[in-house]
């Protein structure tokens, strides 16, 4: 286990401790909820992880380096931001794909920009949820206000990675 994994486990146990203090009912619901979550997630991972592994084998090792590699700098961050906005589907598609990109040589700042772009712009979510519920004026307000953020996120991540060596996926 890595340090980050231990940290996450400790936080989870602390939160579960708060549930216990609330009463046994609360704690039992949290455990049941965890089990149900696991039950829902496992089939998704059973499909998504092999997909990511196949794609990682298919994509040549240096295919992504020129466009969104660690040396691609600002232009790579911009490309990744837009690509993220066009990626369809929920987190169970996006994160395994990011993992495949990382194996193909994508840089850490570029992947931070890609995830941010996907989170903010996700076209499919705008079309199916935001536009019908809140209207196009709201969509316009939100997109204008948030448009530069993926690029900013990528540049900030680049500054962080220059100081702290942070990798993607398995160390």
């Amino acid at each position: 286990m890595t340090g980050g994994q231990v940290f996450l486990a400790v936080i989870a146990l602390v939160a579960f401790g708060f549930c216990l203090r609330r009463g046994p009912g609360s704690a039992r619901r949290a455990v049941v909820d965890t089990g149900q979550g696991l039950w829902k997630i496992l089939p998704i991972f059973a499909v998504a992880l092999p997909m990511a592994a196949f794609l990682a084998e298919l994509i040549p090792a240096d295919a992504a380096v020129a466009w969104i590699g660690p040396e691609s700098g600002v232009s790579g961050v911009v490309v990744a931001s837009f690509a993220g906005g066009l990626m369809p589907g929920g987190p169970f598609v996006t994160f395994p794909l990011v993992l495949a990109f990382a194996k193909a040589g994508a840089g850490v700042p570029q992947m931070a920009a890609l995830i941010t772009g996907w989170s903010i712009f996700a076209l499919h979510r705008i079309i199916t949820w935001e536009y019908p519920i809140l209207g196009w004026r709201f969509v316009a307000i939100r997109l204008i206000a948030a448009a530069p953020l993926p690029i900013v996120a990528g540049l900030l991540a680049e500054a962080v990675v220059a100081v702290l060596p942070i990798g993607l996926g398995r160390p």
Binding site: M1, L8, L13, F16, D33, T34
Partner: peptide, 16 residues
Amino acid sequence: PSLLAGLLLAAALRQL
């Protein structure tokens, strides 16, 4: 391990 811890934390937060 992260998956289990993450699911437990998410479930606990939903209770809280």
